[in-house]
Design a protein around this nucleic acid. Structure first.
Lengths: 152, 152
DNA sequence: GTATTTTACATAGTGCGCAATTTAGTTGTT
DNA sequence: AACAACTAAATTGCGCACTATGTAAAATAC
């Protein structure tokens, strides 16, 4: 039995879909980093801000639901965003367990710059709008399957 | 000027390709986690092991080149893999700056279990082989573009 | 009304991942 | 041979991301 005989299923790293996703995610994060750092934002912080630009005010839980992140990750991240002046955190009055996250004026003002960043990255992907949409749809379908199989 | 007027380009988080990739990567890592933990491996460690199953012996730099990771990430990770008994680390004789990483017998033995894990995940994605190949190719193309634009 | 359970967020601990720096070794130049 | 420049890996510091746990508040059960 040689090494090749063992390759019944386990493909090479390069041909593994999960690795393609992993490597692409890292490539995106790296592409975003220098541009976002000019706004004083990290890539995960940018994703959080995107949620908040849509909604203006959300609870930690709601942000987490959109991003698939929990309070362990979000709490310190949101604190840093608050320190940077992009958001404000306040205990909700109707339920004091909840903390409301609100975008500040400075945070809203940053939206324009973020727009330029997103546009720049879109160009760098070399994808047409149709290609991006197709890829996006496939990744979403894949993810739904993964999530569905988790509940079994 | 209402909020809608600002949406010249910045799409909603949900329709951002970069977020689809981010969310999918996290979904993969989460899907792998319980299965790999039975082997005593984390997802990044599994990726490293995949490289080493192909080559048996590699330098830290070579592993990093395959995975897009640097020694800052790999050094502690490899130390933990060594502690777990999956690999051995040894200074190369021809160039003592280099550290050679070799899979142990225990590490090679784990390959079979990893195969079952990979097979299980492939099923959970709900992708046909053709779909997976297509998606993989598109992600690779995207990544090439991102990397190419970095050098400008 | 009281006790118990559940919920939301924060915190502690561990493993990544990156940038900057350090340590040690090798190569190139004079 | 001596010194400068470069290289490989390790370390330091910081920000994520997840799990487990803690704190406080709200909901539920009796």
């Amino acid at each position: 039995m040689t090494d090749d005989d063992d390759l019944t299923f386990l493909p090479r790293l390069d041909s593994q879909l999960c690795f393609a996703v992993y490597a692409t995610e890292h490539a995106f994060a790296r592409a975003y980093k220098p541009l976002l750092s000019q706004l004083g934002l990290t890539y995960p912080q940018y994703l959080v801000m995107m949620v908040l630009w849509e909604h203006r005010t959300l609870s930690v839980n709601a942000i987490g639901a959109r991003l698939g992140l929990d309070s362990g990750t979000l709490s310190p991240l949101l604190k840093r965003l608050e320190t940077a002046g992009y958001i404000a955190r306040r205990r909700a009055q109707d339920d004091e367990r909840r903390v409301e996250i609100t975008v500040t004026q400075k945070g809203m003002d940053a939206r324009k710059d973020a727009e330029a960043v997103a546009r720049s990255i879109a160009v760098k992907t070399g994808c047409t709008a149709e290609e991006a949409r197709e890829l996006h749809a496939r990744l979403n379908a894949l993810r739904q399957h993964l999530l569905a199989s988790e509940e079994e």
